[in-house]
Design a protein around this nucleic acid. Structure first.
Length: 253
DNA sequence: TGGGTCAAGGGGGAAC
DNA sequence: GTTCCCCCTTGACCCA
């Protein structure tokens, strides 16, 4: 089955300070219950024991519950399908069909249909019109149905990736929080030590006028700003970091 | 019966 | 204008 579906099932009930993306919450289960994952789900179409479990042939009247519900679809001339897809919007052609199928039942793809769609999706996550036509014919579905399946499948993939990204960023956040806490503690300890020892020599020098450039945050002015006459800075002037990179896993970056 | 799942509807943007 | 895609939503269906 789908590789990505074997990934660790991320637990999104874990809380993050900034909260969890609503989209992830709303669609979390949707991904993990994709057809590829839940083929054994009795709810997912007819089980293997049913005639509909067979890979449908163009003349199969039990291709899916949708086709079963709409005999007009199974008898549809493939040429007409192509024409419907080619001429004007495929949506428009579907609308026409839907009008004739008022009171519609929900389509449930068979396991075989889902499996084949999954296989094709593994090869390419998008279909060109020709591939769509061929696949639709193979599955005895309308091209629009194949198209919709791929759209929904891409959405599930993207959502799954969002979940993975979310978990990764959450772990980054936790790591940085820990490091920040540790460094804060270290700072406090150093401050405490500093109070206990005599002030260093440089602190006994006369005070100088130091200014921080608002644009670059460099220390400037006074004696030893590195730019004045003969003024070598008493210590290196390092610009403050402007960006905080959570991916380095170091607050020092 | 409420919640989860998923095919499908439909709006909107991009490319041509 | 058409087509394709993304995105959000809807509604049928299923199950605990």
């Amino acid at each position: 089955m789908m590789d990505m579906d074997h990934e660790e099932d991320t637990c999104l009930s874990l809380s993050l300070g900034c909260g969890q993306p609503a989209a992830i919450r709303n669609h979390h289960r949707q991904i993990n219950a994709s057809p590829a994952l839940s083929v054994s789900d009795g709810a997912y179409n007819n089980g293997p024991s049913t005639p509909a479990a067979r890979l449908p042939s163009p003349h199969d009247s039990t291709v899916s519950s949708f086709s079963t519900a709409y005999p007009s679809l199974k008898d549809e001339d493939p040429g007409e399908e192509v024409e419907a897809e080619r001429g004007g919007s495929s949506r428009a052609s579907d609308e026409e069909e839907d009008v004739s199928n008022a009171g519609k039942k929900k389509l449930r793809l068979t396991k075989e249909q889902s499996a084949l769609l999954e296989d094709r999706f593994k090869e390419h996550s998008t279909l060109n019109p020709k591939q769509k036509q061929v696949l639709a014919k193979q599955l005895n579905l309308r091209p629009r149905q194949v198209e919709v399946w791929f759209q929904n499948r891409r959405a599930r993939t993207k959502l799954k990736q969002t979940e993975v990204d979310y978990e990764f960023l959450k772990r980054c956040c936790e790591t940085l929080t820990d490091e920040n806490r540790r460094l804060q503690k270290e700072v406090n300890e150093l401050r405490a030590m500093k109070l206990m020892v005599a002030p260093p020599l440089y602190m006994q020098l006369p005070a100088v006028n130091l200014a921080v450039c608002p644009s670059c945050d460099r220390v400037a002015g006074g004696v030893g700003d590195g730019q004045g006459k003969g003024g070598a800075a008493p210590f290196p002037v390092v610009p403050k970091p402007r960006f905080f990179n959570p991916f380095t896993h170091s607050a020092a970056c």
